[in-house]
Design a protein around this nucleic acid. Structure first.
Lengths: 214, 214
DNA sequence: CGGACCCTTGATAGCTTTCAAGTCAGGTGG
DNA sequence: CCACCTGACTTGAAAGCTATCAAGGGTCCG
């Protein structure tokens, strides 16, 4: 069980209880929770919806670092400024906490400090897997990794929900939208998956997919 | 083991004092400090030498996550097992501490806990930058980024020491050794750099390099 | 001088991108 | 209810970039 890249980010070791709680906030689809470079004032816990987190180069090239689902924490960069942008892919609700308040929590409670560290370490591990994927995997492998991640995340037996657009997949995988589409077609042609709808993937030969991913 | 060598990896916010200290250990060139998958028993602080840290796919494809220089910490993954392999590129000396001891330290001393978190967050930030480089930059840009990193790290005005082989550069940049060589040639041809020796790069037009990197 | 290793260079192949249509589903308004 | 429109996805053809395969230096060191 090599730690395959987890596209959908989740706590490394699930916390028994949320690290913090509080009133809920809503964001509309396409709204930014926070932007790269802005002062990092808050840390968020996602309650519902899907969020993408990434960066853009000045010329518009975009790289997505990960997708977030309910339960995930956002803004753990914990520096003075956010290092990337988080945007709602759907309507989203979150709980947020001031960064200083979270640090205060960690100073008073050893368990909170440890949980915070574990979350950050988990994020680091996923980021390292992402580096391997982008540096050394061919296009079809990348797509297979992502589909398996979606599958694992959803816990679905074989019918997997793809919660993001082809463009977002491409920007996560370091490919173009056309290449993603062609790779999916290839996997379908090889009998590894079927595509009831563009956003639903049926895993027909999960073992073969996992072999491909290594 | 010239102290002018540089690396991509450095503490996010330099610690006033080392997080821990103790007796020194030596590793020979090409020796592994620890291997991916092994039980993560120790955390290391590099005292002298250069270390590379990375993963390999089963078919031999290699991806390097970063290069480490004196002052850097290794093994901060802090999970049950190391997530990557660390190997000495030169003779190396380190100080090491048991993982549990470090956690104990963090539990007793809020400042240590915070330093540990900051180190991990810094590592995460560098990893995110690496993802952007691998996902969305062309070969020559990647090489330029690495050369500028080496430059910044060494603090050299214009004559930069490249402390790693072309193969290691390639494995860090997600390229082949030939492509790295050709990109360096290209930069030289365009007058941005000169190459007194293969491991010494003279920055002739740093502004242009930085423009290229964005 | 010979050998080993690292780096460079050349030619060709292959994969992914780019450019350009074309299809499909969902939503809107007539 | 249907025509239309828009956005998302797919498909095709050609170009471009990087990898692969294959030599060819250069340097260090025995």
């Amino acid at each position: 069980m090599s730690s395959s890249v987890l596209a959908l980010v989740r706590p490394a070791s699930p916390l028994a209880a949320p690290l913090f709680d509080g009133p809920r906030l809503a964001f509309a689809r396409d709204e930014a929770l926070f932007a790269e470079g802005a002062r990092a004032e808050f840390v968020y816990r996602l309650v519902s919806g899907v969020v993408r987190r990434g960066k853009v180069l000045r010329d518009g090239r975009r790289q997505i670092d990960g997708f977030h689902l309910p339960g995930d924490y956002l803004g753990l960069e914990l520096g003075e400024h956010y290092r990337l942008t988080a945007e709602a892919l759907t309507a989203v609700t979150v709980v947020r906490i001031r960064r200083e308040a979270l640090h205060g929590l960690a100073e008073q409670d050893v368990r909170a400090a440890r949980a915070l560290l574990d979350l950050t370490v988990g994020e680091l591990g996923r980021c390292q897997d992402h580096v391997l994927l982008l540096g050394r995997r061919a296009a079809t492998e990348r797509v297979a990794v992502l589909l398996l991640d979606f599958a694992q995340r959803s816990g679905a037996e074989s019918l997997v929900d793809v919660p993001v657009s082809r463009q977002d997949m491409a920007d996560y995988l370091g490919l173009t939208i056309e290449t993603v589409s062609r790779c999916i077609h290839q996997l379908q042609h090889d009998g590894l998956i079927a595509l009831p709808t563009p956003r639903k993937v049926l895993l027909r030969d999960r073992a073969a997919l996992e072999r491909m991913v290594g």
